[in-house]
């Protein structure tokens, strides 16, 4: 990992002179200013910074769910700015697994159906999908909870389901936006252990936004974002 210029092809993620501004009525609010970032495959990177510093925005840009005002973002061999909306959606489905602070499970779907969602975008048959979902739920320690709805699960269990959903399609990159932000310390610890396992055993590249220094310690490297500028 480097936060300076580097060879884009050697890295899973490369950001060059990335700017992001938001318009609020007549005002332009700068969020990110000239971000340069390279992340190698298999790294576990933590992003810290005060509220409003642009951490989630940076994560969204790398995850391909937002567009920079200026600059180039290359992830998994694709320059995201060149992709059409439909190709970008397909790219996300193939390469990125998202983990949110508030889990964002679909309330009307069981744990099984929630985890299955990314697989509905693949050509896998029902039997293969079932096998993979059961594998993913087993990985996060939720065997036997397939039929439970989100309201029937604890916060920690919901986040595990969300993690299973993020990894079930075997993405190249996991982006986690304050994954322990809504959990008590015990559950937070379990989720961090799980993320570490995914990084070490499955070699998943992980980008995690957090406010919690204890959580950030799990990462290989911690970067700080302050007023839109990235610091080691």
């Amino acid at each position: 990992m480097t936060d300076g210029r580097g060879n884009g092809d050697a890295y899973l993620i490369s950001l060059r002179d990335v700017h992001k501004e938001y318009r609020r009525d007549a005002f332009v609010v700068p969020v990110l200013a000239g971000i340069e970032l390279d992340v190698a495959p298999g790294e576990f990177l933590a992003l810290m910074g005060p509220s409003g510093s642009g951490k989630s925005t940076l994560l969204n840009l790398i995850g391909g769910i937002d567009h920079p005002t200026k600059g180039e973002i290359r992830v998994a061999g694709e320059s995201l700015g060149t992709l059409s909306p439909s190709r970008l959606a397909a790219w996300r489905a193939r390469h990125v697994g998202f983990i949110f602070q508030l889990y964002n499970l679909i309330p009307v779907l069981t744990a099984f159906r929630n985890v299955e969602l990314p697989l509905l975008l693949t050509r896998l048959g029902a039997a293969e999908r079932r096998k993979r979902v059961e594998l993913a739920l087993g990985l996060v320690g939720l065997e036997g909870r397939e039929g439970h709805y989100p309201r029937q699960l604890s916060g920690g269990e919901e986040q595990r389901v969300a993690i299973a959903r993020a990894v079930v399609a075997d993405p190249t990159l996991l982006v986690a936006d304050e994954p322990t932000g809504d959990l008590d310390s015990k559950n937070a610890e379990e989720i961090l252990v799980l993320l570490q396992r995914l990084n070490q055993e499955l070699k998943k590249t992980i980008l995690m936004v957090t406010h919690d220094p204890h959580a950030a310690e799990r990462a290989h490297k911690i970067l700080y974002l302050d007023k839109g500028v990235l610091r080691s």
Partner: peptide, 16 residues
Amino acid sequence: TTEIAVLKTLGFSDGL
């Protein structure tokens, strides 16, 4: 709204 945004995040296209 959030749910639809989540679906799109997972890779569901606008058309789908």
